[in-house]
């Protein structure tokens, strides 16, 4: 099934530069409907507001709610639990990756990353595009 590039993507990061970089890279990949949130709490609010998102790309280290907590909230919400969720983080320790995997993360990108990695991980979650 072809990936719908018109779908909305929610990117979550407390660094404005990272949000800007992700938005630009997603635009290059053909995803123009991109919304932003600066921490897990505000992301959860957006997700629960009823807006439909085809993918969440989230950082881990954020306050007050971090990316792992956001992921757990998403996976425990019946309306959101099947939402594709990619973690993009500098946390590269294996125990962190395992914790995210156990919490149900769809894929995991370690910072710094390149556009090819982002595309490959998105394709593994959404299907080739």
């Amino acid at each position: 099934m072809a990936v719908d590039r018109d779908m909305s993507v929610l990117i979550v990061d407390d660094y404005k530069t990272m949000l800007r970089i992700l938005r630009n890279l997603l635009k290059q990949l053909g995803f123009n409907n991109v919304d932003e949130a600066v921490d897990g709490g505000s992301a959860l609010q957006v997700l629960r507001s009823g807006a439909s998102y085809g993918l969440v790309i989230s950082d881990w280290n954020m306050e007050p709610m971090n990316g792992l907590q956001l992921l757990k909230e998403v996976r425990s919400d019946p309306k959101l639990r099947s939402m594709p969720f990619i973690m993009v983080t500098a946390e590269s320790k294996s125990e962190n990756v395992i914790a995210a995997k156990q919490a149900g993360v769809s894929n995991y990108i370690v910072k710094p990353f390149n556009a090819a990695t982002l595309k490959a991980k998105m394709a593994s979650v959404l299907g080739e595009f």
Binding site: Y15, A90, P112
Partner: peptide
């Protein structure tokens, strides 16, 4: 030119790492 811009975006991820 788009490839060049992509390389710039990728390089700029340093700011997030150094900030952390």
């Amino acid at each position: 030119l788009t490839e060049i811009a992509t390389r710039v975006y990728e390089a700029c991820t340093f700011q997030d790492i150094t900030g952390q």
